[in-house]
Simulated assay, not measured.
Amino acid sequence: MTDLRIFTEPQQGASYDQLLAVARATEDLGFDAFFRSDHYLAMGGDGLPGPTDAWTTLAGLARETSRIKLGTLVSSVTYRHPGILAIQVAQVDQMSGGRAELGLGAGWFQREHEAYGIPFPEKRFGLLEEQLAVITGLWSTPEGETFDFDGEHYRLVDSPALPKPVQSPVPVLVGGNGPRRTPALAARFASEYNAAFPEIEDIPKRFAAVRSACEEIGRRPDDLRYSAALVLCVGKDEAEFRRRAEAIGREPDELREHGVAGTVDEAVATLNGMVAAGADRVYLQVLDLADLDHMELVAREVAPQLDR
């Protein structure tokens, strides 16, 4: 079964109420999950009405939805201490009845750190490795026992490792473009590996690297889910596709090359190609959050034709 998930970029300009409308449409239309980026600064444009915090948003949505999974693609290790993030995600998991998922990455957008006074160390991969160890360690510590960690970047002493999430474990997503270190981290800590905006022809190679990393440490490669995130821009005909491309400021030819884009038949062909390449789920990056008809078209015309 291949899941279709809605993925949003609220730093480009979205209020909580707009995100709630998209999340409710995600649920009503039968998509599997609502995910959002974790950024604080627009990448072009004025970003009005301003950023929303990812885990504050997901906490609200946890109480206003009932079925869909809720998560980040991805939270940056530079934003939150891992002990605090473990508490936040566990609480959202409780608030949602066990629907939270954590995507975690090393971070890359230096300008947003400068804009909001967030430290941005030059080397962050070690932070990511230790945060994954701390967060998964806290969650997996049995009740009544304590958790200790003494790393280069973080030190925890006699932590009660509370609260516990509903899920055991909470799904953890690791993604990235690195050919060696990222697959190794995914194999050690993740329940899902995500290829974010890859060249479509590179997807099998990305997945194969993670499978190989799993085998190297004695983990079954099929224990992980494999996914990719691509921009979404689909029309019922060529004219509608081009109108939607213009609305998000992208060129039609470029979208067809790099995204799930074009007419319904083209979108179906692209997604079925990803299924054939081993994708268990696809994150559809929705950039025009006011265009709920776009999501409805995909749910009604595209999703039923997928190879599952």
Results as ranks from 00 to 15, higher is better:
135 I>K: 11
136 T>N: 10
136 T>Y: 10
137 G>Y: 10
137 G>T: 07
139 W>D: 10
140 S>T: 13
141 T>V: 04
141 T>S: 00
142 P>G: 01
142 P>Y: 04
147 F>L: 00
147 F>Q: 01
153 H>T: 04
154 Y>K: 00
160 P>F: 01
162 L>I: 07
162 L>V: 04
168 S>M: 05
169 P>T: 09
170 V>G: 13
172 V>I: 15
174 V>I: 15
175 G>D: 03
176 G>R: 08
177 N>Y: 09
177 N>T: 14
177 N>V: 14
179 P>I: 02
180 R>D: 10
182 T>V: 15
182 T>Q: 09
186 A>I: 11
186 A>E: 04
186 A>M: 06
187 A>D: 03
189 F>N: 05
190 A>M: 13
191 S>Q: 15
194 N>H: 05
196 A>I: 14
198 P>R: 13
200 I>F: 13
200 I>P: 07
201 E>G: 02
201 E>I: 05
201 E>K: 12
201 E>Y: 05
206 R>E: 13
207 F>L: 15
207 F>Q: 01
209 A>T: 01
209 A>R: 12
212 S>Y: 01
212 S>F: 04
215 E>C: 00
216 E>W: 06
216 E>T: 12
217 I>F: 12
219 R>A: 09
222 D>W: 06
223 D>Y: 03
224 L>S: 01
225 R>F: 00
226 Y>S: 11
226 Y>T: 08
229 A>E: 08
230 L>V: 04
232 L>Y: 06
239 A>T: 11
239 A>E: 07
240 E>H: 05
240 E>G: 05
242 R>S: 07
245 A>K: 03
246 E>Q: 14
247 A>E: 04
257 E>D: 12
262 G>W: 01
